[in-house]
Design a protein around this nucleic acid. Structure first.
Length: 646
RNA sequence: GCCGAAGUAGCUCAGUGGCAGAGCAACUGAUUCGUAAUCAGUAGGUCCGGGGUUCAAAUCCCCGCUUCGGCACCA
């Protein structure tokens, strides 16, 4: 860093366009105080030429400066990072045998990873949180110091802080070793930080304790991570906690049980027992996709579940994917349940001679796959061991990759829109460390995909090193109704598998050529997608997807016969209906079917029976709509139509 | 797979060494009611599985399974 002692005036440009001049180097808090006492007490940090720095940092040259206060969006990250430090201080005061490691700000909060032989209990969390509030009350000044590297390593080693010493050792030579001190406690940190612990405020809460590997590597020892959430004020904290409750209310595992959609049980961990209503939803979604795919020029196939090991060896799966494959033995042959559909599709492609006129060949399969996922990864429908993909492989020429990718992106966006998702992010995942194929092949594949996304007008976010072992991929991420992201769709360019499994076509030139394979899925898997769909809609599916669309509820048993007629009329129009003829009050029936999230309740009593009408009550609405039976049937039939049918 | 927690009636949960419980749901009966819970009664248990300690175990100890929260991995 350049130290210039200049007698020249330092000119500080503020966001409102004004410029203040100082005789020499000036601190951020001095500038804030200069502007006004209100700002001085609200000031948390400064931004110097766009970079956030400590309030007390010295500005020794002309710069654009703004004062960061609690109203600033970036202040939250600062505050959360401080919350992590205050938590670490509290933990080390309470549990001196604990070593600190790292503690960053994250979305919605912060965490800190500790090394300690005893596990932290929920009671410990309450104690730590209480101590944190005390530290906030102490309002300890937070001061940045620059230390000598070797002295810092020695210091932390003497404290028994071996992780910190390791972190400092790994900081590149020439970089400053900055230490932040607050009260008796200090930590290695690049900052910036708030001026004092009192500025943190008390809108925080410790949420949970969990295991986390040192440096995120499963070969390393496991640390204890304490997660917390922190906000600028109590109102924001309360809103966040409310959002968590909302997420819990929408949990697909809970709704799946309450709505009678599916269950899982330990004898088949990671596989789904679909109940009639859940399977109805599944079939509706599959039929919709089938229609979409047919319209988009796909052909549908079906390939074997159990396939001899030799094919997986040729495809490369045995080498790269073995640990995730289930195997079976029969008559001294080793078979494996397919974890992917691609090798099977190449076998179909290879049957008969393919010509360039056959390309692009879009081969779709609702392929049931099994993958032996690690037990700790299983989670409701979101992560299972047996699932069905809306999978397809597009065999095409290199020249067709761009057009096929663009067409796929359009199809995908239409499907997502039909299913109620508008917010889609696209990530570009390039070559992973463990991969098949030469670097030249990867260069070509990545270039083709880059060109294709540019042609499709898609903005992509890089996701380095996350490609499939056989090729780069696009990952389509949906944002749901309560702001959570789900990676579902994918498109992967593959120059490797056609080579390994010897797929060829005869070109215009009469010569044999390798096709390119595009692996693509829109929903990803039906299981996961339905999980997301349940949570996104909070179980209140659009009418066309609701397993039961209308319940006919007579007010007394006198209307049972008419209720039967109404149900028959609705069913005759293709609507999925039930009649609730139980001897219960209408209040009870309305409550029960509302809780079951049935979109429409058709109430019929003596009046309706006499007039040939029905009273429709929509889910979530208190108004009823009285229509002639035929009119009600016609209206509902129209509303319940699939958003895409040929 | 790793760290931590949990597993009791269909569901939500109480029960810290001495008779296995509640509410809702189910079933039976009564009630026939106009838009989010009618009343009464009945039935329902491998207290996750296996071993151990004890006169006695849902409860204490050990092993395993599953689930939950994370981590790692991933559609």
């Amino acid at each position: 860093m350049e130290q210039q002692l200049s007698t020249d005036a330092i000119r500080i440009a503020l966001p409102d366009g004004s410029v203040r001049s100082y005789d020499g180097p000036v601190r951020g808090d001095e500038i804030a105080a200069d502007i006004g006492p209100g700002l001085a007490s609200a000031a948390l940090a400064i931004r110097v030429d766009g970079t956030m720095r400590d309030l007390a940092s010295v500005i020794d040259r002309d710069a654009e400066v703004s004062i960061v206060t609690g109203k600033d969006a970036d202040a939250l990250a600062l505050l959360r990072h401080d919350a992590a430090h205050v938590m670490a201080e509290a933990v080390q005061e309470l549990y001196p045998d604990t070593q600190v490691t790292i503690g960053p700000a994250i979305e919605n909060g912060f965490y800190y990873d500790f090394a300690r032989s005893e596990p932290f209990t929920p009671d410990d969390l309450a104690r730590i949180e209480e101590r944190m509030r005390e530290i906030v009350d102490r309002d300890e000044a937070i001061v940045r110091e620059i230390w000598d590297r070797d002295a810092a390593i020695e210091f932390f080693k003497n404290l028994g802080e071996h992780y910190k010493a390791q972190i400092i050792t790994d900081i590149p030579e020439g970089e400053a070793i900055s230490i932040y001190r607050q009260g008796q406690w200090l930590d290695l940190c690049t900052g910036p930080h708030l001026p004092s612990t009192g500025k943190l405020g008390k809108a925080f809460k410790l949420m949970k304790v969990a295991g986390a590997y040192w440096r995120g590597d499963s070969r390393n020892e496991m640390l204890q991570r304490i997660y917390g959430t922190a906000w600028a004020d109590q109102k924001q904290l309360k809103a966040y906690l409310h959002m968590l409750e909302e997420a819990e209310r929408r949990d697909h595992r809970r709704l799946g049980r309450e709505m009678g959609l599916f269950h899982v049980q330990e004898e088949a961990a990671g596989s789904v027992f679909w109940h009639p209503k859940g399977w109805t939803l599944y079939r509706l979604l599959q039929n919709y996709m089938r229609t979409r795919l047919e319209h988009a020029g796909y052909v549908e196939v079906n390939t074997p579940q159990l396939v001899d090991r030799s094919l997986w060896e040729r495809s490369g799966h045995w080498e790269k994917f073995r640990e995730h494959m289930f195997t079976a033995e029969a008559e001294e042959r080793m078979l494996a349940l397919k974890p992917m559909n691609c090798p099977g599709h190449v076998q179909i492609f290879r049957h008969g001679v393919k010509s360039y006129r056959d390309l692009p060949l879009r081969m779709a399969e609702f392929g049931a796959c099994h993958r032996n996922e690690p037990s700790g990864a299983l989670h409701g429908l979101m992560r299972v061991r047996a699932f069905t993909q809306d999978d397809a492989h597009i065999f095409c020429t290199e020249d067709q990759v761009t057009g096929e990718t663009a067409a796929f992106c359009a199809l995908l966006q239409n499907v997502y829109r039909d299913l109620g998702f508008d917010d889609v992010i696209v990530k570009f995942a390039d070559r992973p460390a463990k991969r098949a194929g030469s670097d030249e092949t990867w260069d070509r594949a990545e270039r083709a995909l880059t060109e294709a996304t540019a042609a499709a007008g898609l903005a992509t976010i890089p996701n380095p090193g996350e490609g499939a072992f056989y090729g780069p991929k696009l990952e389509f991420v949906l944002r749901d109704a309560i702001g959570r992201d789900w990676q579902l769709g994918t498109l992967q360019v593959d120059f490797v598998l056609p080579e390994r499994l010897d797929a060829v076509y005869v070109g215009e030139d009469g010569q044999r050529h390798r096709p390119v394979m595009l692996h693509r899925a829109i929903l990803g898997s039906f299981e996961r997608f339905i999980g997301v769909l349940i949570e996104h809609h909070a179980g209140r599916f659009p009418l066309w997807l609701a397993p039961v669309q209308v319940v006919v509820a007579p007010i007394t048993n006198d209307a049972d016969a008419y209720a039967g007629q109404v149900q028959a009329a609705l069913a005759g129009a293709g609507l999925r209906t039930e009649a609730d003829l139980r001897n219960e009050k209408i209040n009870y029936k309305v409550r029960e079917h509302s809780l079951a999230k049935v979109p429409v309740i058709a109430v019929v009593g003596a009046k309706e029976a006499a007039a040939g009408t029905v009273a429709l009550r929509r889910l979530g609405g208190a108004q009823q709509e009285i229509l002639a039976l035929e009119e009600a049937v016609a209206t509902l039939r129209q509303e319940a139509a699939s958003p895409f049918s040929r």
